[in-house]
C-alpha cells in the first residue's frame, strides 16, 4: 500500500533543471534511501516534498486512511499537518530556546486551547501545558535527552543536536519522516548507534522513512529500497544489493571506465 507517490516531479531554477521527471513511490512502513553524488538534487527533492520549493511541474500525493492529499501546492506548515515531518541537512534547531521548548513547539499544531486561554492562563491552559511537558519528556527519554531538557539547544554537542532535531520531527506526529543526512559529521560508532535508533523509531512509531545519506554503511544496512539520483534524474532503483551492482550507479559515483585499447 503506497503512502507517498511522486509523479514526474520537476523543478527548474531558471535554465537549470535541479530535479527533472522524478518518480518515487513509498509503501507504508518502508525505509527508503535516496542517494546520489553531491549536487544531484536530493535536498531539492526534500524541499519540494515539504513545500519549501513549489514544483515547476509534477504531482506529490500523500495517502492516509483512505484519503489522499495533493502536497505540491500546499504551504510547509499544512504539509506538516498532513503528516510529513523532516530534519535538515544543516541543523535548524531553535538555538536560543531550551531542549524542551524545541520539542513543545513541534506539538503546537495539535494544540486545543485558544488565544483567550493563553492570555488569561485558564484551567484549560495549565492542563494542556502539563500534558505537553509530559509528552515532550517521554519523547526526549527515547533519545536520552530528557536530563538536558532545560539546556539551550545551542549548547548541546553536535550529535545531540542532530538527535534533538529527530525528536522535534517526531513530536510533530508524522506518518512520513524525511531525514536529510542524519549521520553527517558523526564518527563510525555514533553512526552505528544512529542506524539502530532509526530502525527502532520506525518500528515503534509506525513510520515510513525516506532518508538522504552519504554514509553507505548506514544506507546499505537499513534501507529496504534505494533510489539513486544524478543530475536531477532517478538513474536507478532497487534493493541495496541491486544498487551495489548497478553499472550506472558506479559510473555516477566513480566515473566511466576508460577503455585502454
Amino acid at each position: 500500500m503506497p503512502i507517498l507517490k511522486v509523479n514526474k516531479l520537476t523543478k527548474a531554477f531558471g535554465g537549470l533543471m535541479a530535479v527533472s521527471n522524478v518518480n518515487l513511490e513509498l509503501n507504508q512502513g518502508e525505509l527508503v534511501g535516496l542517494i546520489g553524488p553531491n549536487g544531484a538534487g536530493k535536498t531539492t527533492v526534500f524541499n519540494l516534498l515539504t513545500g519549501i520549493y513549489v514544483p515547476t511541474s509534477g504531482t506529490i500525493t500523500l495517502f492516509q486512511d483512505n484519503n489522499q492529499t495533493q502536497l505540491q501546492c500546499l504551504k510547509p506548515y499544512t504539509i506538516c499537518k498532513a503528516g510529513v515531518a523532516r530534519t535538515f541537512q544543516n541543523i535548524r534547531l531553535f538555538k536560543d530556546l531550551t531542549v524542551l521548548d524545541n520539542v513543545r513547539i513541534a506539538m503546537h499544531k495539535n494544540l486545543d486551547y485558544g488565544l483567550f486561554a493563553s492570555l488569561f492562563h485558564t484551567k484549560a491552559y495549565s492542563e494542556e501545558e502539563n500534558q505537553l511537558i509530559e509528552k515532550s519528556l517521554e519523547l526526549l527519554k527515547i533519545l536520552k535527552l530528557h536530563h538536558k531538557k532545560d539546556e539551550l539547544a545551542r549548547n548541546l554537542p553536535y550529535g545531540e543536536q542532530r538527535h534533538l532535531e529527530i525528536v522535534r520531527a517526531l513530536a510533530a506526529n508524522p506518518s512520513l519522516l524525511l531525514l536529510d543526512e542524519p549521520a553527517a559529521g558523526m564518527n563510525p560508532a555514533e553512526t552505528a548507534n544512529l542506524t539502530e535508533m532509526i530502525g527502532w523509531i520506525r518500528k515503534n512509531f509506525n513510520l515510513t522513512i525516506l532518508l538522504i545519506e552519504h554514509d553507505m554503511s548506514l544506507v546499505m544496512k537499513i534501507c529496504e529500497r534505494i533510489y539513486v539520483l544524478d543530475y536531477g534524474m532517478v538513474i536507478a532503483e532497487g534493493t541495496p544489493s541491486e544498487i551495489k551492482a548497478n553499472k550506472r550507479v558506479i559510473e555516477a559515483y566513480l566515473g566511466e571506465e576508460v577503455n585502454h585499447a
Binding site: C80, A85, R92, S118, L119, E129, A172
Partner: peptide
C-alpha cells in the same frame, strides 16, 4: 502570559528560524 503559552512559543520559534518553524507546523 501570552509569551509563556504555546502560542507565544510559536511566535518565538519564528524569530529563531522561520523555515524550521513552518516545517514543524
Amino acid at each position: 502570559n501570552f509569551i509563556k503559552s504555546s502560542h507565544g512559543r510559536a511566535c518565538i520559534s519564528i524569530r529563531e528560524d522561520e523555515i524550521a518553524a513552518e516545517a514543524v507546523g
